[in-house]
Structures are given as C-alpha cells and as structure tokens.
C-alpha cells in the first residue's frame, strides 16, 4: 500500500516538474505577450496542482497536507486574477495581440463569431 502511494506521488511530482519546465520553455518560445500568458498559465494550474498533489500523497494526513491545500487554493484563486489584470493592463496601454487572422481585431465582433452565437 505504501509502495503504491510512493509510486503514485513519484509519478505526480515528476509529471508536475516536467509540466513546469514545458511552461517555462513555452514562455521563452512564444512569439508575443498574450501567447506567453497561455504558457505561464500551464505552470500556474496543472504543473502546480500535480506537484502539490504528489507532495500531499507523500505527507499523509497531517498538518502539512492542510498547508499544501491552502497553497493550492491560493494559487487557484489568485493566478487568474493576476493574469487577467496583466492582460487588461497590457491592452489598456495599447499592446495589441498578434493574431492569425488579422481582419478580426476584436474591437468589433467578427462575423464568424456572430454567426455562431445566433445558432444557439
């Protein structure tokens, strides 16, 4: 039983570290600010969650588990707030995102999106 738990936490921690590295790599590779945010949110959500879960399995049912849970909840609630504030501030200062389809600027709703919503 403890062996299985050990193996599980081992897998979770390694997966979390790998995800954090992928996110950091994405932060370096992505071409502009907004796409970089997606890479960063990879670290903030799944990377952190897997690492914390792995450590929780390692700690067992103690006070440490409760603290790890507090850290997880903190990240869960604050990281979207920070990301949204960043996106909003960048846009307010006139940073326009790089778009695949340059005709859709987002200032005016594009035709494709409008059609989609009328279908509902």
């Amino acid at each position: 039983m403890t062996d299985a738990l050990d193996l599980g936490s081992w897998i979770l921690i390694i997966a979390g570290s790998i995800l954090c590295m992928i996110g950091a790599l994405g932060l370096l590779r992505m071409p502009d600010l907004f796409t970089r945010m997606h890479a960063a949110s990879l670290v903030d959500t799944l990377g952190a969650a897997l690492l914390l879960l792995g450590m929780t399995l390692q700690a067992g049912f103690t006070l440490v588990t409760a603290k790890l849970l507090v850290i997880g909840l903190l990240l869960f609630f604050t990281s979207p707030t920070a990301t949204h504030a960043l996106a909003r501030a960048a846009r307010a200062r006139g940073v326009e995102p790089l778009l695949a389809d340059q005709s859709a600027t987002g200032r005016a709703p594009s035709k494709r999106v409008e059609g989609k919503q009328e279908q509902q």
Partner: peptide, 21 residues
C-alpha cells in the same frame, strides 16, 4: 516590454513558491 517582464516575474514567483515547498 514591461508586461513581458511582469509576466515572467509573476511566473517566477509561482515556481519559487513550488520550489520552496
């Protein structure tokens, strides 16, 4: 831009927090 740096610092903070744990 300054926003790229802020983004990087925010993510660095998250990773540092995980590293501390």
């Amino acid at each position: 831009s300054v926003f790229d740096r802020t983004q990087a610092v925010n993510t660095a903070g998250t990773v540092a927090m995980l590293l501390l744990a």
